[in-house]
Design a protein around this nucleic acid. Structure first.
Length: 195
DNA sequence: AATTCACCCAACCGCCTACAC
DNA sequence: TGTGTAGGCGGTTGGGTGAAT
């Protein structure tokens, strides 16, 4: 049975390995034509022996327009620390407040740089605050959104510890990042021109 | 120069939720 | 309403690379 291009329960990590320039180009072309959705279809159209998930990850973490790589500033680091203190390991939410940064990059940065800086308090590490106990991704229910809003306001006002406010906060913006990179799509197409 | 170690980061895994049928 | 599938997320792994010995 051929499990290429789909999620196989027996799939090994080394199935595909690092993406090649050619694979990136095929994926970029397929997304340019069909949009960044229906990833399984994109994988098939592009003729890639990758699963949809893998294509999505590659796009979000590497190929997407306006990706910033490396050189995380002091301000960004401070915001990561502050957000993590309040909402825990919710990398996608944290990434949403850092334009151009991906959840994977922030997660890696945390694990390799910031975790060392944080001393465990009361023997508890990375514990989610009350109201944000759900382990999976963004808050989706009204209640969760309300709690997340309270947390985000806390962050932007310095966490109530006498710190200076950092940024203004807009709840809709916090959740709606869908248009974030749209304006640079044409520039990006020049990197991976459609045939 | 060769080997070992530590770190970084891209990619994969498994779980969960949303959605279509 | 129940079921299957796709998408999204955090956790984890393993290869590459540079520093230390």
């Amino acid at each position: 049975m051929d499990f290429s291009g789909m999620d196989s329960p027996t799939k090994k990590r080394s199935n595909n390995g690092a993406w090649t320039v050619e694979e990136d180009r095929k994926l970029a072309e397929a997304i340019a034509v069909h949009g960044a959705r229906r990833w399984k279809k994109i994988a098939n159209i592009a003729g890639l022996s990758r699963c949809g998930k893998s294509c999505r990850l590659r796009w979000l973490n590497y190929l997407r327009p306006n990706i910033k790589r490396g050189n995380i500033s002091d301000q960004e680091e401070d915001l990561i620390l502050r957000l993590h203190k309040l909402i825990g390991n919710r990398w996608s939410l944290i990434a949403g407040r850092l334009p151009g940064r991906t959840d994977n990059e922030i997660k890696n940065y945390w694990n390799s740089h910031l975790r060392k800086k944080i001393k465990p308090q009361n023997g508890i590490r990375n514990r989610r605050p009350e109201g944000l106990q759900k382990p999976n991704s963004v808050a989706r229910t009204t209640e969760e959104k309300f709690d997340a809003e309270a947390v985000a306001k806390d962050v932007t006002t310095g966490g109530g510890e006498g710190e200076e406010p950092t940024t203004s906060f807009n709840m809709d913006e916090f959740y709606d990042l869908s248009m974030q990179y749209r304006s640079d799509f044409d520039d990006w197409l020049n990197v991976f021109p459609v045939k």
